[in-house]
C-alpha cells in the first residue's frame, strides 16, 4: 500500500477520531456519575456549533422565525469558541435540572431518563429548525485568520496534505482532553467527581455536594460536546439542525466500544472508530456511516462492557 495514502488516512482518522473522543467524553462524564445515557448530548453538540457560528457574526438564512438574524458584532473564532460553548454548557445544566433531576429524585429507572433526554433532543433540534431553518451554514472564510488552508506533512514528491481545519480539530481536542484529564486527576473537584462516580452515597456521606457536582458534570459535558460540534461545523459545515444526531449515534458507538464510564475508553474508542471510518475503501464510502453502527452492534453482542470497561456482576 502506498505509504503516503496510508499516512493520509491515518491522519484523517486521528483528526476525526479525536473529535469523536471529545464528543464521547460528554456521554462518559454523565454516565459515570448518573449511570444514564444522555441523549440530549447530540443536541447540545449541535447548539454549540450554532452558538459559536452566531457569535462569529454569522448570518442566518431565509427560513425560520429568526430569518436573516445576525449579531451586530463578530468575535474572533477562539473567543467565540469558548463563549459559545460556555452557553452550550449552561444549556446542558438547564437540561439536567428540567429533564434529569425530577427522575433522579424519584429513583426512577435509568431508561426513563434516557427517554426523557430523547425528548429534550427532539425539542432542541426542532426548536433550532423552527428558529433558524434547516439550511446549511459554513463558517466565514476568515475564521482561521491567516493560517494556510492545508499543511503538508510529507515531501514535495509525496505530499501528505492535512487540512488546517483538521489540524485544528486535532490540536484543540488534544488540548481539551489533556486539560480534562489533569482536571479530573489533579484537582480537588476532579477527585470529588471521581468519588461520586465510584459511589454516590458514600460521597454524599463524606459531605460532598453531589448536586452541585452533577451540575458541573453536565456543564463540562455540554462544553466539551459543544466544542466538538463547533469543530466539526467549522471543519466541514453545519449541515442543518440534524447534523448532530448522526454524530450523536456514533458517539454512542464510541462509548460502548470504549466502555461505558471509562474516560480512556472514550479516547481509545473515538480514535478507533475515526480510523476505521477513514480506512473504508473508496468504493464503499457511502457505507461509511454504517461503520460506527456495525461496531456498536458487534460490541454490544460480544463485549457490552467495551474494551476498557469492567464487566458488571449481577447481584441476586
Amino acid at each position: 500500500m502506498d505509504a503516503t495514502l496510508l499516512l493520509q488516512q491515518i491522519l484523517n482518522g486521528l483528526a476525526i477520531g479525536s473529535v469523536f473522543a471529545l464528543f464521547a467524553l460528554g456521554y462518559t462524564l454523565v454516565f459515570s456519575i448518573l449511570r444514564v445515557i444522555n441523549f440530549s448530548h447530540a443536541a447540545v453538540f449541535t447548539l454549540g456549533a450554532y452558538f459559536t457560528y452566531a457569535l462569529t457574526g454569522g448570518a442566518f438564512g431565509f427560513n425560520g422565525l429568526l430569518a436573516n438574524a445576525q449579531l451586530p458584532f463578530g468575535l474572533p473564532f477562539p473567543v467565540a469558541l469558548v463563549l459559545g460553548n460556555i452557553l452550550a454548557g449552561l444549556t446542558a445544566m438547564g437540561i439536567e435540572r428540567l429533564a434529569f433531576k425530577p427522575l433522579r429524585a424519584r429513583g426512577a429507572d435509568p431508561l426513563l431518563a434516557l427517554v426523557s433526554s430523547l425528548g429534550v433532543a427532539v425539542v432542541i433540534v426542532n426548536l433550532i429548525q423552527y428558529l433558524v431553518g434547516a439550511e446549511l451554514y459554513t463558517f466565514p472564510a476568515e475564521t482561521y485568520g491567516a493560517l494556510p488552508p492545508a499543511v503538508n506533512f510529507g515531501t514535495a514528491e509525496h505530499p501528505v496534505q492535512v487540512r488546517t481545519t483538521q489540524l485544528i480539530m486535532f490540536v484543540v481536542s488534544l488540548v481539551v482532553l489533556i486539560a480534562l484529564t489533569l482536571f479530573i486527576n489533579r484537582t480537588k473537584i476532579g477527585t470529588a467527581l471521581r468519588a461520586v462516580a465510584e459511589d454516590e452515597t458514600t460521597a454524599r456521606l463524606l459531605g460532598i455536594d453531589t448536586d452541585k457536582l452533577i451540575l458541573l458534570t453536565f456543564f463540562l459535558s455540554g462544553f466539551l460536546g459543544g466544542i466538538a460540534g463547533t469543530l466539526v461545523g467549522a471543519s466541514v459545515s453545519i449541515s442543518g439542525p440534524y447534523f448532530g444526531i448522526a454524530f450523536g449515534l456514533k458517539g454512542l458507538a464510541v462509548i460502548i466500544l470504549g466502555g461505558l464510564g471509562s474516560i480512556p475508553g472514550a479516547v481509545v474508542g473515538g480514535l478507533a472508530i475515526g480510523l476505521a471510518e477513514s480506512f473504508v475503501p473508496g468504493q464503499y464510502v457511502a457505507y461509511k456511516e454504517a461503520v460506527a453502527f456495525a461496531f456498536l452492534f458487534i460490541a454490544l453482542l460480544i463485549r457490552p462492557q467495551g474494551l476498557l470497561g469492567r464487566a458488571v456482576i449481577r447481584k441476586v
Binding site: 444514564v36 445515557i37 435509568p110 457505507y287 456511516e289 453502527f293 456498536l296 452492534f297 454490544l300
Partner: peptide
C-alpha cells in the same frame, strides 16, 4: 441482541435501524 437488557438493548436496536437505513440509501 435480546440477551442485552435495558439501555444496551435500546442502543442495539437503534444501531440496527441505522444500519438498515444506510443500506437502504445505497
Amino acid at each position: 441482541a435480546l440477551r442485552l437488557r435495558g439501555v444496551y438493548l435500546a442502543l442495539a436496536t437503534i444501531a440496527f435501524v441505522e444500519i438498515l437505513r444506510v443500506l437502504s440509501l445505497n
